[in-house]
Design a protein around this nucleic acid. Sequence first.
DNA 1: TTTGGATATGCATGGTATGACATATCGTCA
DNA 2: TGACGATATGTCATACCATGCATATCCAAA
Lengths: 124, 124
Amino acid sequence: METKFREKLSAINLHYKIWMSDKKDAGILGDGKWQILKLIDQKGSLKAACDELGYTYRRTWGDLKKIEKFFGFPLLEKHRGGHEGGKTVLTEEGKRLVNAFDQFHASVDAMIQKGFESFIENLK
Amino acid sequence: METKFREKLSAINLHYKIWMSDKKDAGILGDGKWQILKLIDQKGSLKAACDELGYTYRRTWGDLKKIEKFFGFPLLEKHRGGHEGGKTVLTEEGKRLVNAFDQFHASVDAMIQKGFESFIENLK
DNA sequence: TTTGGATATGCATGGTATGACATATCGTCA
DNA sequence: TGACGATATGTCATACCATGCATATCCAAA
């Protein structure tokens, strides 16, 4: 089947976002916070993680505050002071959350890609 | 396994968005346009569809213009004038696009829900 | 040939998200 | 014990986008 769509299909880029919210739809965890949590733990520093991802410290700090407020317990071990200025790593719960989201995301990634390919086929 | 997360898990709502864009990341088709396209065809009217979904006519009109500009051919048959003021229905291509997105969305819906349940289980 | 209601489009404005800036606090190590 | 650099937090400016308002255009039916 030849359709008018054919020549445009390769110009289409697929995007998607998954996130979780509380009852009031205030964002809790999404791709952004997930990434930054992972990188914070890897680098041992909130600031360093922000710098690398190009996020502002101010904003990220607010995001992390929200997610911890929602759960009611810390996901991060934050330390101020010291010669290095401070450091931040994930708590056990933080690691658990990130790992769960890792798995979720990986399974969704694969499926969405497959579904998108079918979508394109259907338009050919 | 009993974790600190347990009591909060039921308060978490899952959301996701799928959309397509051109190379410049200008939105082409997403949940909003998909819904409105379907409803326009059903109602035979752009205005009626906007009213029902609570979208502004002004905005929706702009959205539809973008998607048609991207594809380079009409997805809608728009008629002005007449006693009824005018009417709008999908072209063959419009229907084809909506149907393809219908299928895509349905398959993703089911899969994401399943993945989310596993995510919750992992946190228990 | 007039009327009515939907399509079509420009523009002004106001609210919100975001970033930029400022500054306080902390604690370890040299 | 003082200096350093990261954590922690308030505030203000602004850029963006959604919304609303206004208005032009069209044509079938009465």
